[in-house]
């Protein structure tokens, strides 16, 4: 079936079977491999994308659910020449190790700061608790989100 939606600011139309998982659609059909898959069962958050600004697990979504929606993947977060402040902070604060969780973490954090521009460390921990990271111990991710929040206010 034909599905049209806005992907990273551009309107697209794509043919996909109705049971196509969104994570496969993005990675395989659209070559947007920044969206990762770590479990396929909604447990790890690696496949997080933003749908109308809300973080969603693309491994649990089917292609038709995108119809008419505004979708942002990690590839579409930064503008051409400038990183998003959260991405910038992840780089500076050492929040990236193997990096496999990073796209999902960054998008979940984006959603968090949109809802709560001034979160405490505990609120940040709460906000990213659906995203699993096996490498960092989370501290530097919390540091990065905290710093990004400060920066985004100025």
């Amino acid at each position: 079936m034909k599905i049209s939606f806005i992907l990273n600011g551009k309107k697209i139309e794509i043919d996909a079977p109705p049971d196509r998982r969104v994570v496969d659609l993005l990675r395989e059909d659209l070559n947007l491999t920044g969206t990762k898959e770590g479990c396929g069962e909604g447990e790890c958050g690696a496949c997080t994308i933003l749908v109308n600004g809300e973080s969603r697990l693309s491994c649990l979504m089917l292609a038709p659910q995108l119809e008419g929606q505004k979708v942002t993947t990690i590839e579409g977060l930064a503008s051409a020449e400038k990183l998003h402040p959260i991405q910038q902070a992840f780089v500076e604060f050492g929040a990236v190790q193997c990096g496999f969780c990073s796209p999902g973490m960054v998008l979940a954090s984006t959603n968090l700061l949109q809802k709560n521009p001034n979160p405490s460390r505990a609120e940040i921990r709460e906000g990213i608790s659906g995203n699993f990271c096996r490498c960092t111990g989370y501290q530097k991710i919390v540091d990065a989100v905290e710093a990004a929040a400060r920066k985004m206010k100025i």
Binding site: E75, F90, G94, G99
Partner: peptide
């Protein structure tokens, strides 16, 4: 002295290709 990781930028923008990212 801390130098930020050279791989962080490509990972945090989703550009870095892992072994499972090739189709």
């Amino acid at each position: 002295k801390t130098v930020p990781r050279q791989d962080a930028l490509s990972k945090v923008t989703g550009q870095e290709k892992y072994a499972v990212d090739y189709y």
